[in-house]
């Protein structure tokens, strides 16, 4: 395994720091900063591009929902409406609670928008794919 060493100077908040980086083995890289040496595991390393997008909570990855309606994902009974008509809602906001499969299911908004019409009432039974509300 070739043994490689690099030197660099970085500036953080006006303070200059000298770095010495040594590639020791396939598993680790040693980084010496001002006399302190840290071991970085290469398996933890992140390469050239931005990795922040590879997380669970990354909502951007999802396909855009098409159409202007929210439909029931499951047969059940409307337990409670959480928004009213003409109300502005944000993506992820709870629109209503649907009682189904022994559970109060939160039906969340697929996008930002304004509620145009609510097509169901509290206590009403709905089937899967029934339209619950419409956006502007």
């Amino acid at each position: 395994m070739p043994h490689e060493e690099y030197k660099a100077t970085i500036k953080i908040k006006g303070r200059k720091l000298k770095l010495r980086i040594e590639e020791k083995d396939p598993e680790s890289i040693f980084v010496a900063i001002e006399g302190d040496t840290y071991r970085v595991r290469t398996s933890d390393l992140i390469t050239r591009r931005d990795w922040s997008k590879q997380r669970d909570e990354d909502e951007d990855m999802y396909l855009d929902e098409e159409g202007n309606t929210v439909v029931s994902p499951i047969p059940g009974v409307i337990a409670r409406l959480a928004v009213g008509e003409r109300e502005d809602v944000q993506k992820g906001q709870v629109l209503l609670l649907l009682l189904a499969m022994k559970m109060e299911n939160e039906i969340c908004s697929p996008r930002d928008g304004t509620v145009k019409r609510i097509r169901v009432q509290e206590g009403q039974a709905v089937q899967a794919n029934d339209v619950l509300l419409e956006f502007e």
Binding site: T47, R49, W51, K53
Partner: peptide, 10 residues
Amino acid sequence: AMANEEGCFH
């Protein structure tokens, strides 16, 4: 599903 190909290798 990855945002870029580097993500795959990681």
